[in-house]
Design a protein around this nucleic acid. Structure first.
Lengths: 134, 134
DNA sequence: AAATGAATGTTATGTTTTCTGACATAAAAA
DNA sequence: TTTTTATGTCAGAAAACATAACATTCATTT
């Protein structure tokens, strides 16, 4: 019974546990979309010996983020830029940070300039996840 | 980012998420063993439309329990009895409980009578799960 | 208006994974 | 000794997933 708590509370979010079919359900993305995002280095799911993708909970979170960013009108390049900035090690952050932040602001501004945020987006919303919980 | 916490902390433990290959890794059981335990109604993993087994974290926990019970010298029948008693609704517990508990005690006593508990069992131990965490 | 590019859909074909069922086996129980 | 239990192993079929190519939609650019 101890295992229960261990598994649900402490299991590493980076453990590759989920096949693509489950991730599709959890994120409401198509396999095509998920593979496309991987192709553009937004995610890097693990692979089995037989080359099948296995996703971690972190991967699922990232995919939900990507979906949200896309709904907000960002494109893949913009999302990737954000992730690249995020993954920049702390020591390197000090100097190039301001530069990159300015760049990011410009980029986001550019993105949103001519795009009215579609409020009627049929996309994902927090409450949509409710069917996975109780 | 909110999703992260939702996914890791609140995701239903009964959600069928894991394919058998992953469960094999998590439990160090063979597919044969897992299917055998299902055949004897110790677990009831969900099925995909295509009839593939999909396991919940609860299923994993149960399998780890089963492994532990087996290591302790119980047999499948004994483990099943324990689970049947557990799953007995509360209202029905009052009367038959004592009877069944007595039966259980007798059963366990029977089981262990001629079996020296193998302390050197090469089996599962809590620390064995450590490689899944950090 | 036409061409381009980004994001996704669709289809084809091959490989991996999982399924059930049958038979084999070692150890324990009867 | 014979039976039963728990598990191993193998075969054949089906599901799930892989990559790759081509199609489509829509926004941007020329």
């Amino acid at each position: 019974m101890k295992w229960v708590n261990l598994m649900t509370n402490r299991v590493r979010r980076t453990m590759p546990l989920l096949p693509i079919s489950i991730v599709m359900q959890l994120t409401e993305l198509t396999a095509r979309q998920i593979r496309y995002y991987e192709e553009h280095d937004l995610i890097s799911p693990a692979r089995t010996e037989g080359n099948k993708r296995m996703f971690s909970l972190n991967d699922v979170d990232t995919l939900l983020e990507i979906k949200d960013y896309l709904d907000q009108g960002l494109n893949i390049a913009g999302i990737k830029k954000i992730y690249d900035l995020r993954e920049t090690p702390e020591n390197e952050k000090a100097e190039p940070k301001n530069l990159s932040d300015a760049e990011l602001r410009r980029l986001l501004h550019e993105e949103l300039k001519h795009q009215a945020r579609p409020l009627e987006r049929g996309g994902f919303r927090q409450s949509d996840l409710s069917r996975f919980f109780n």
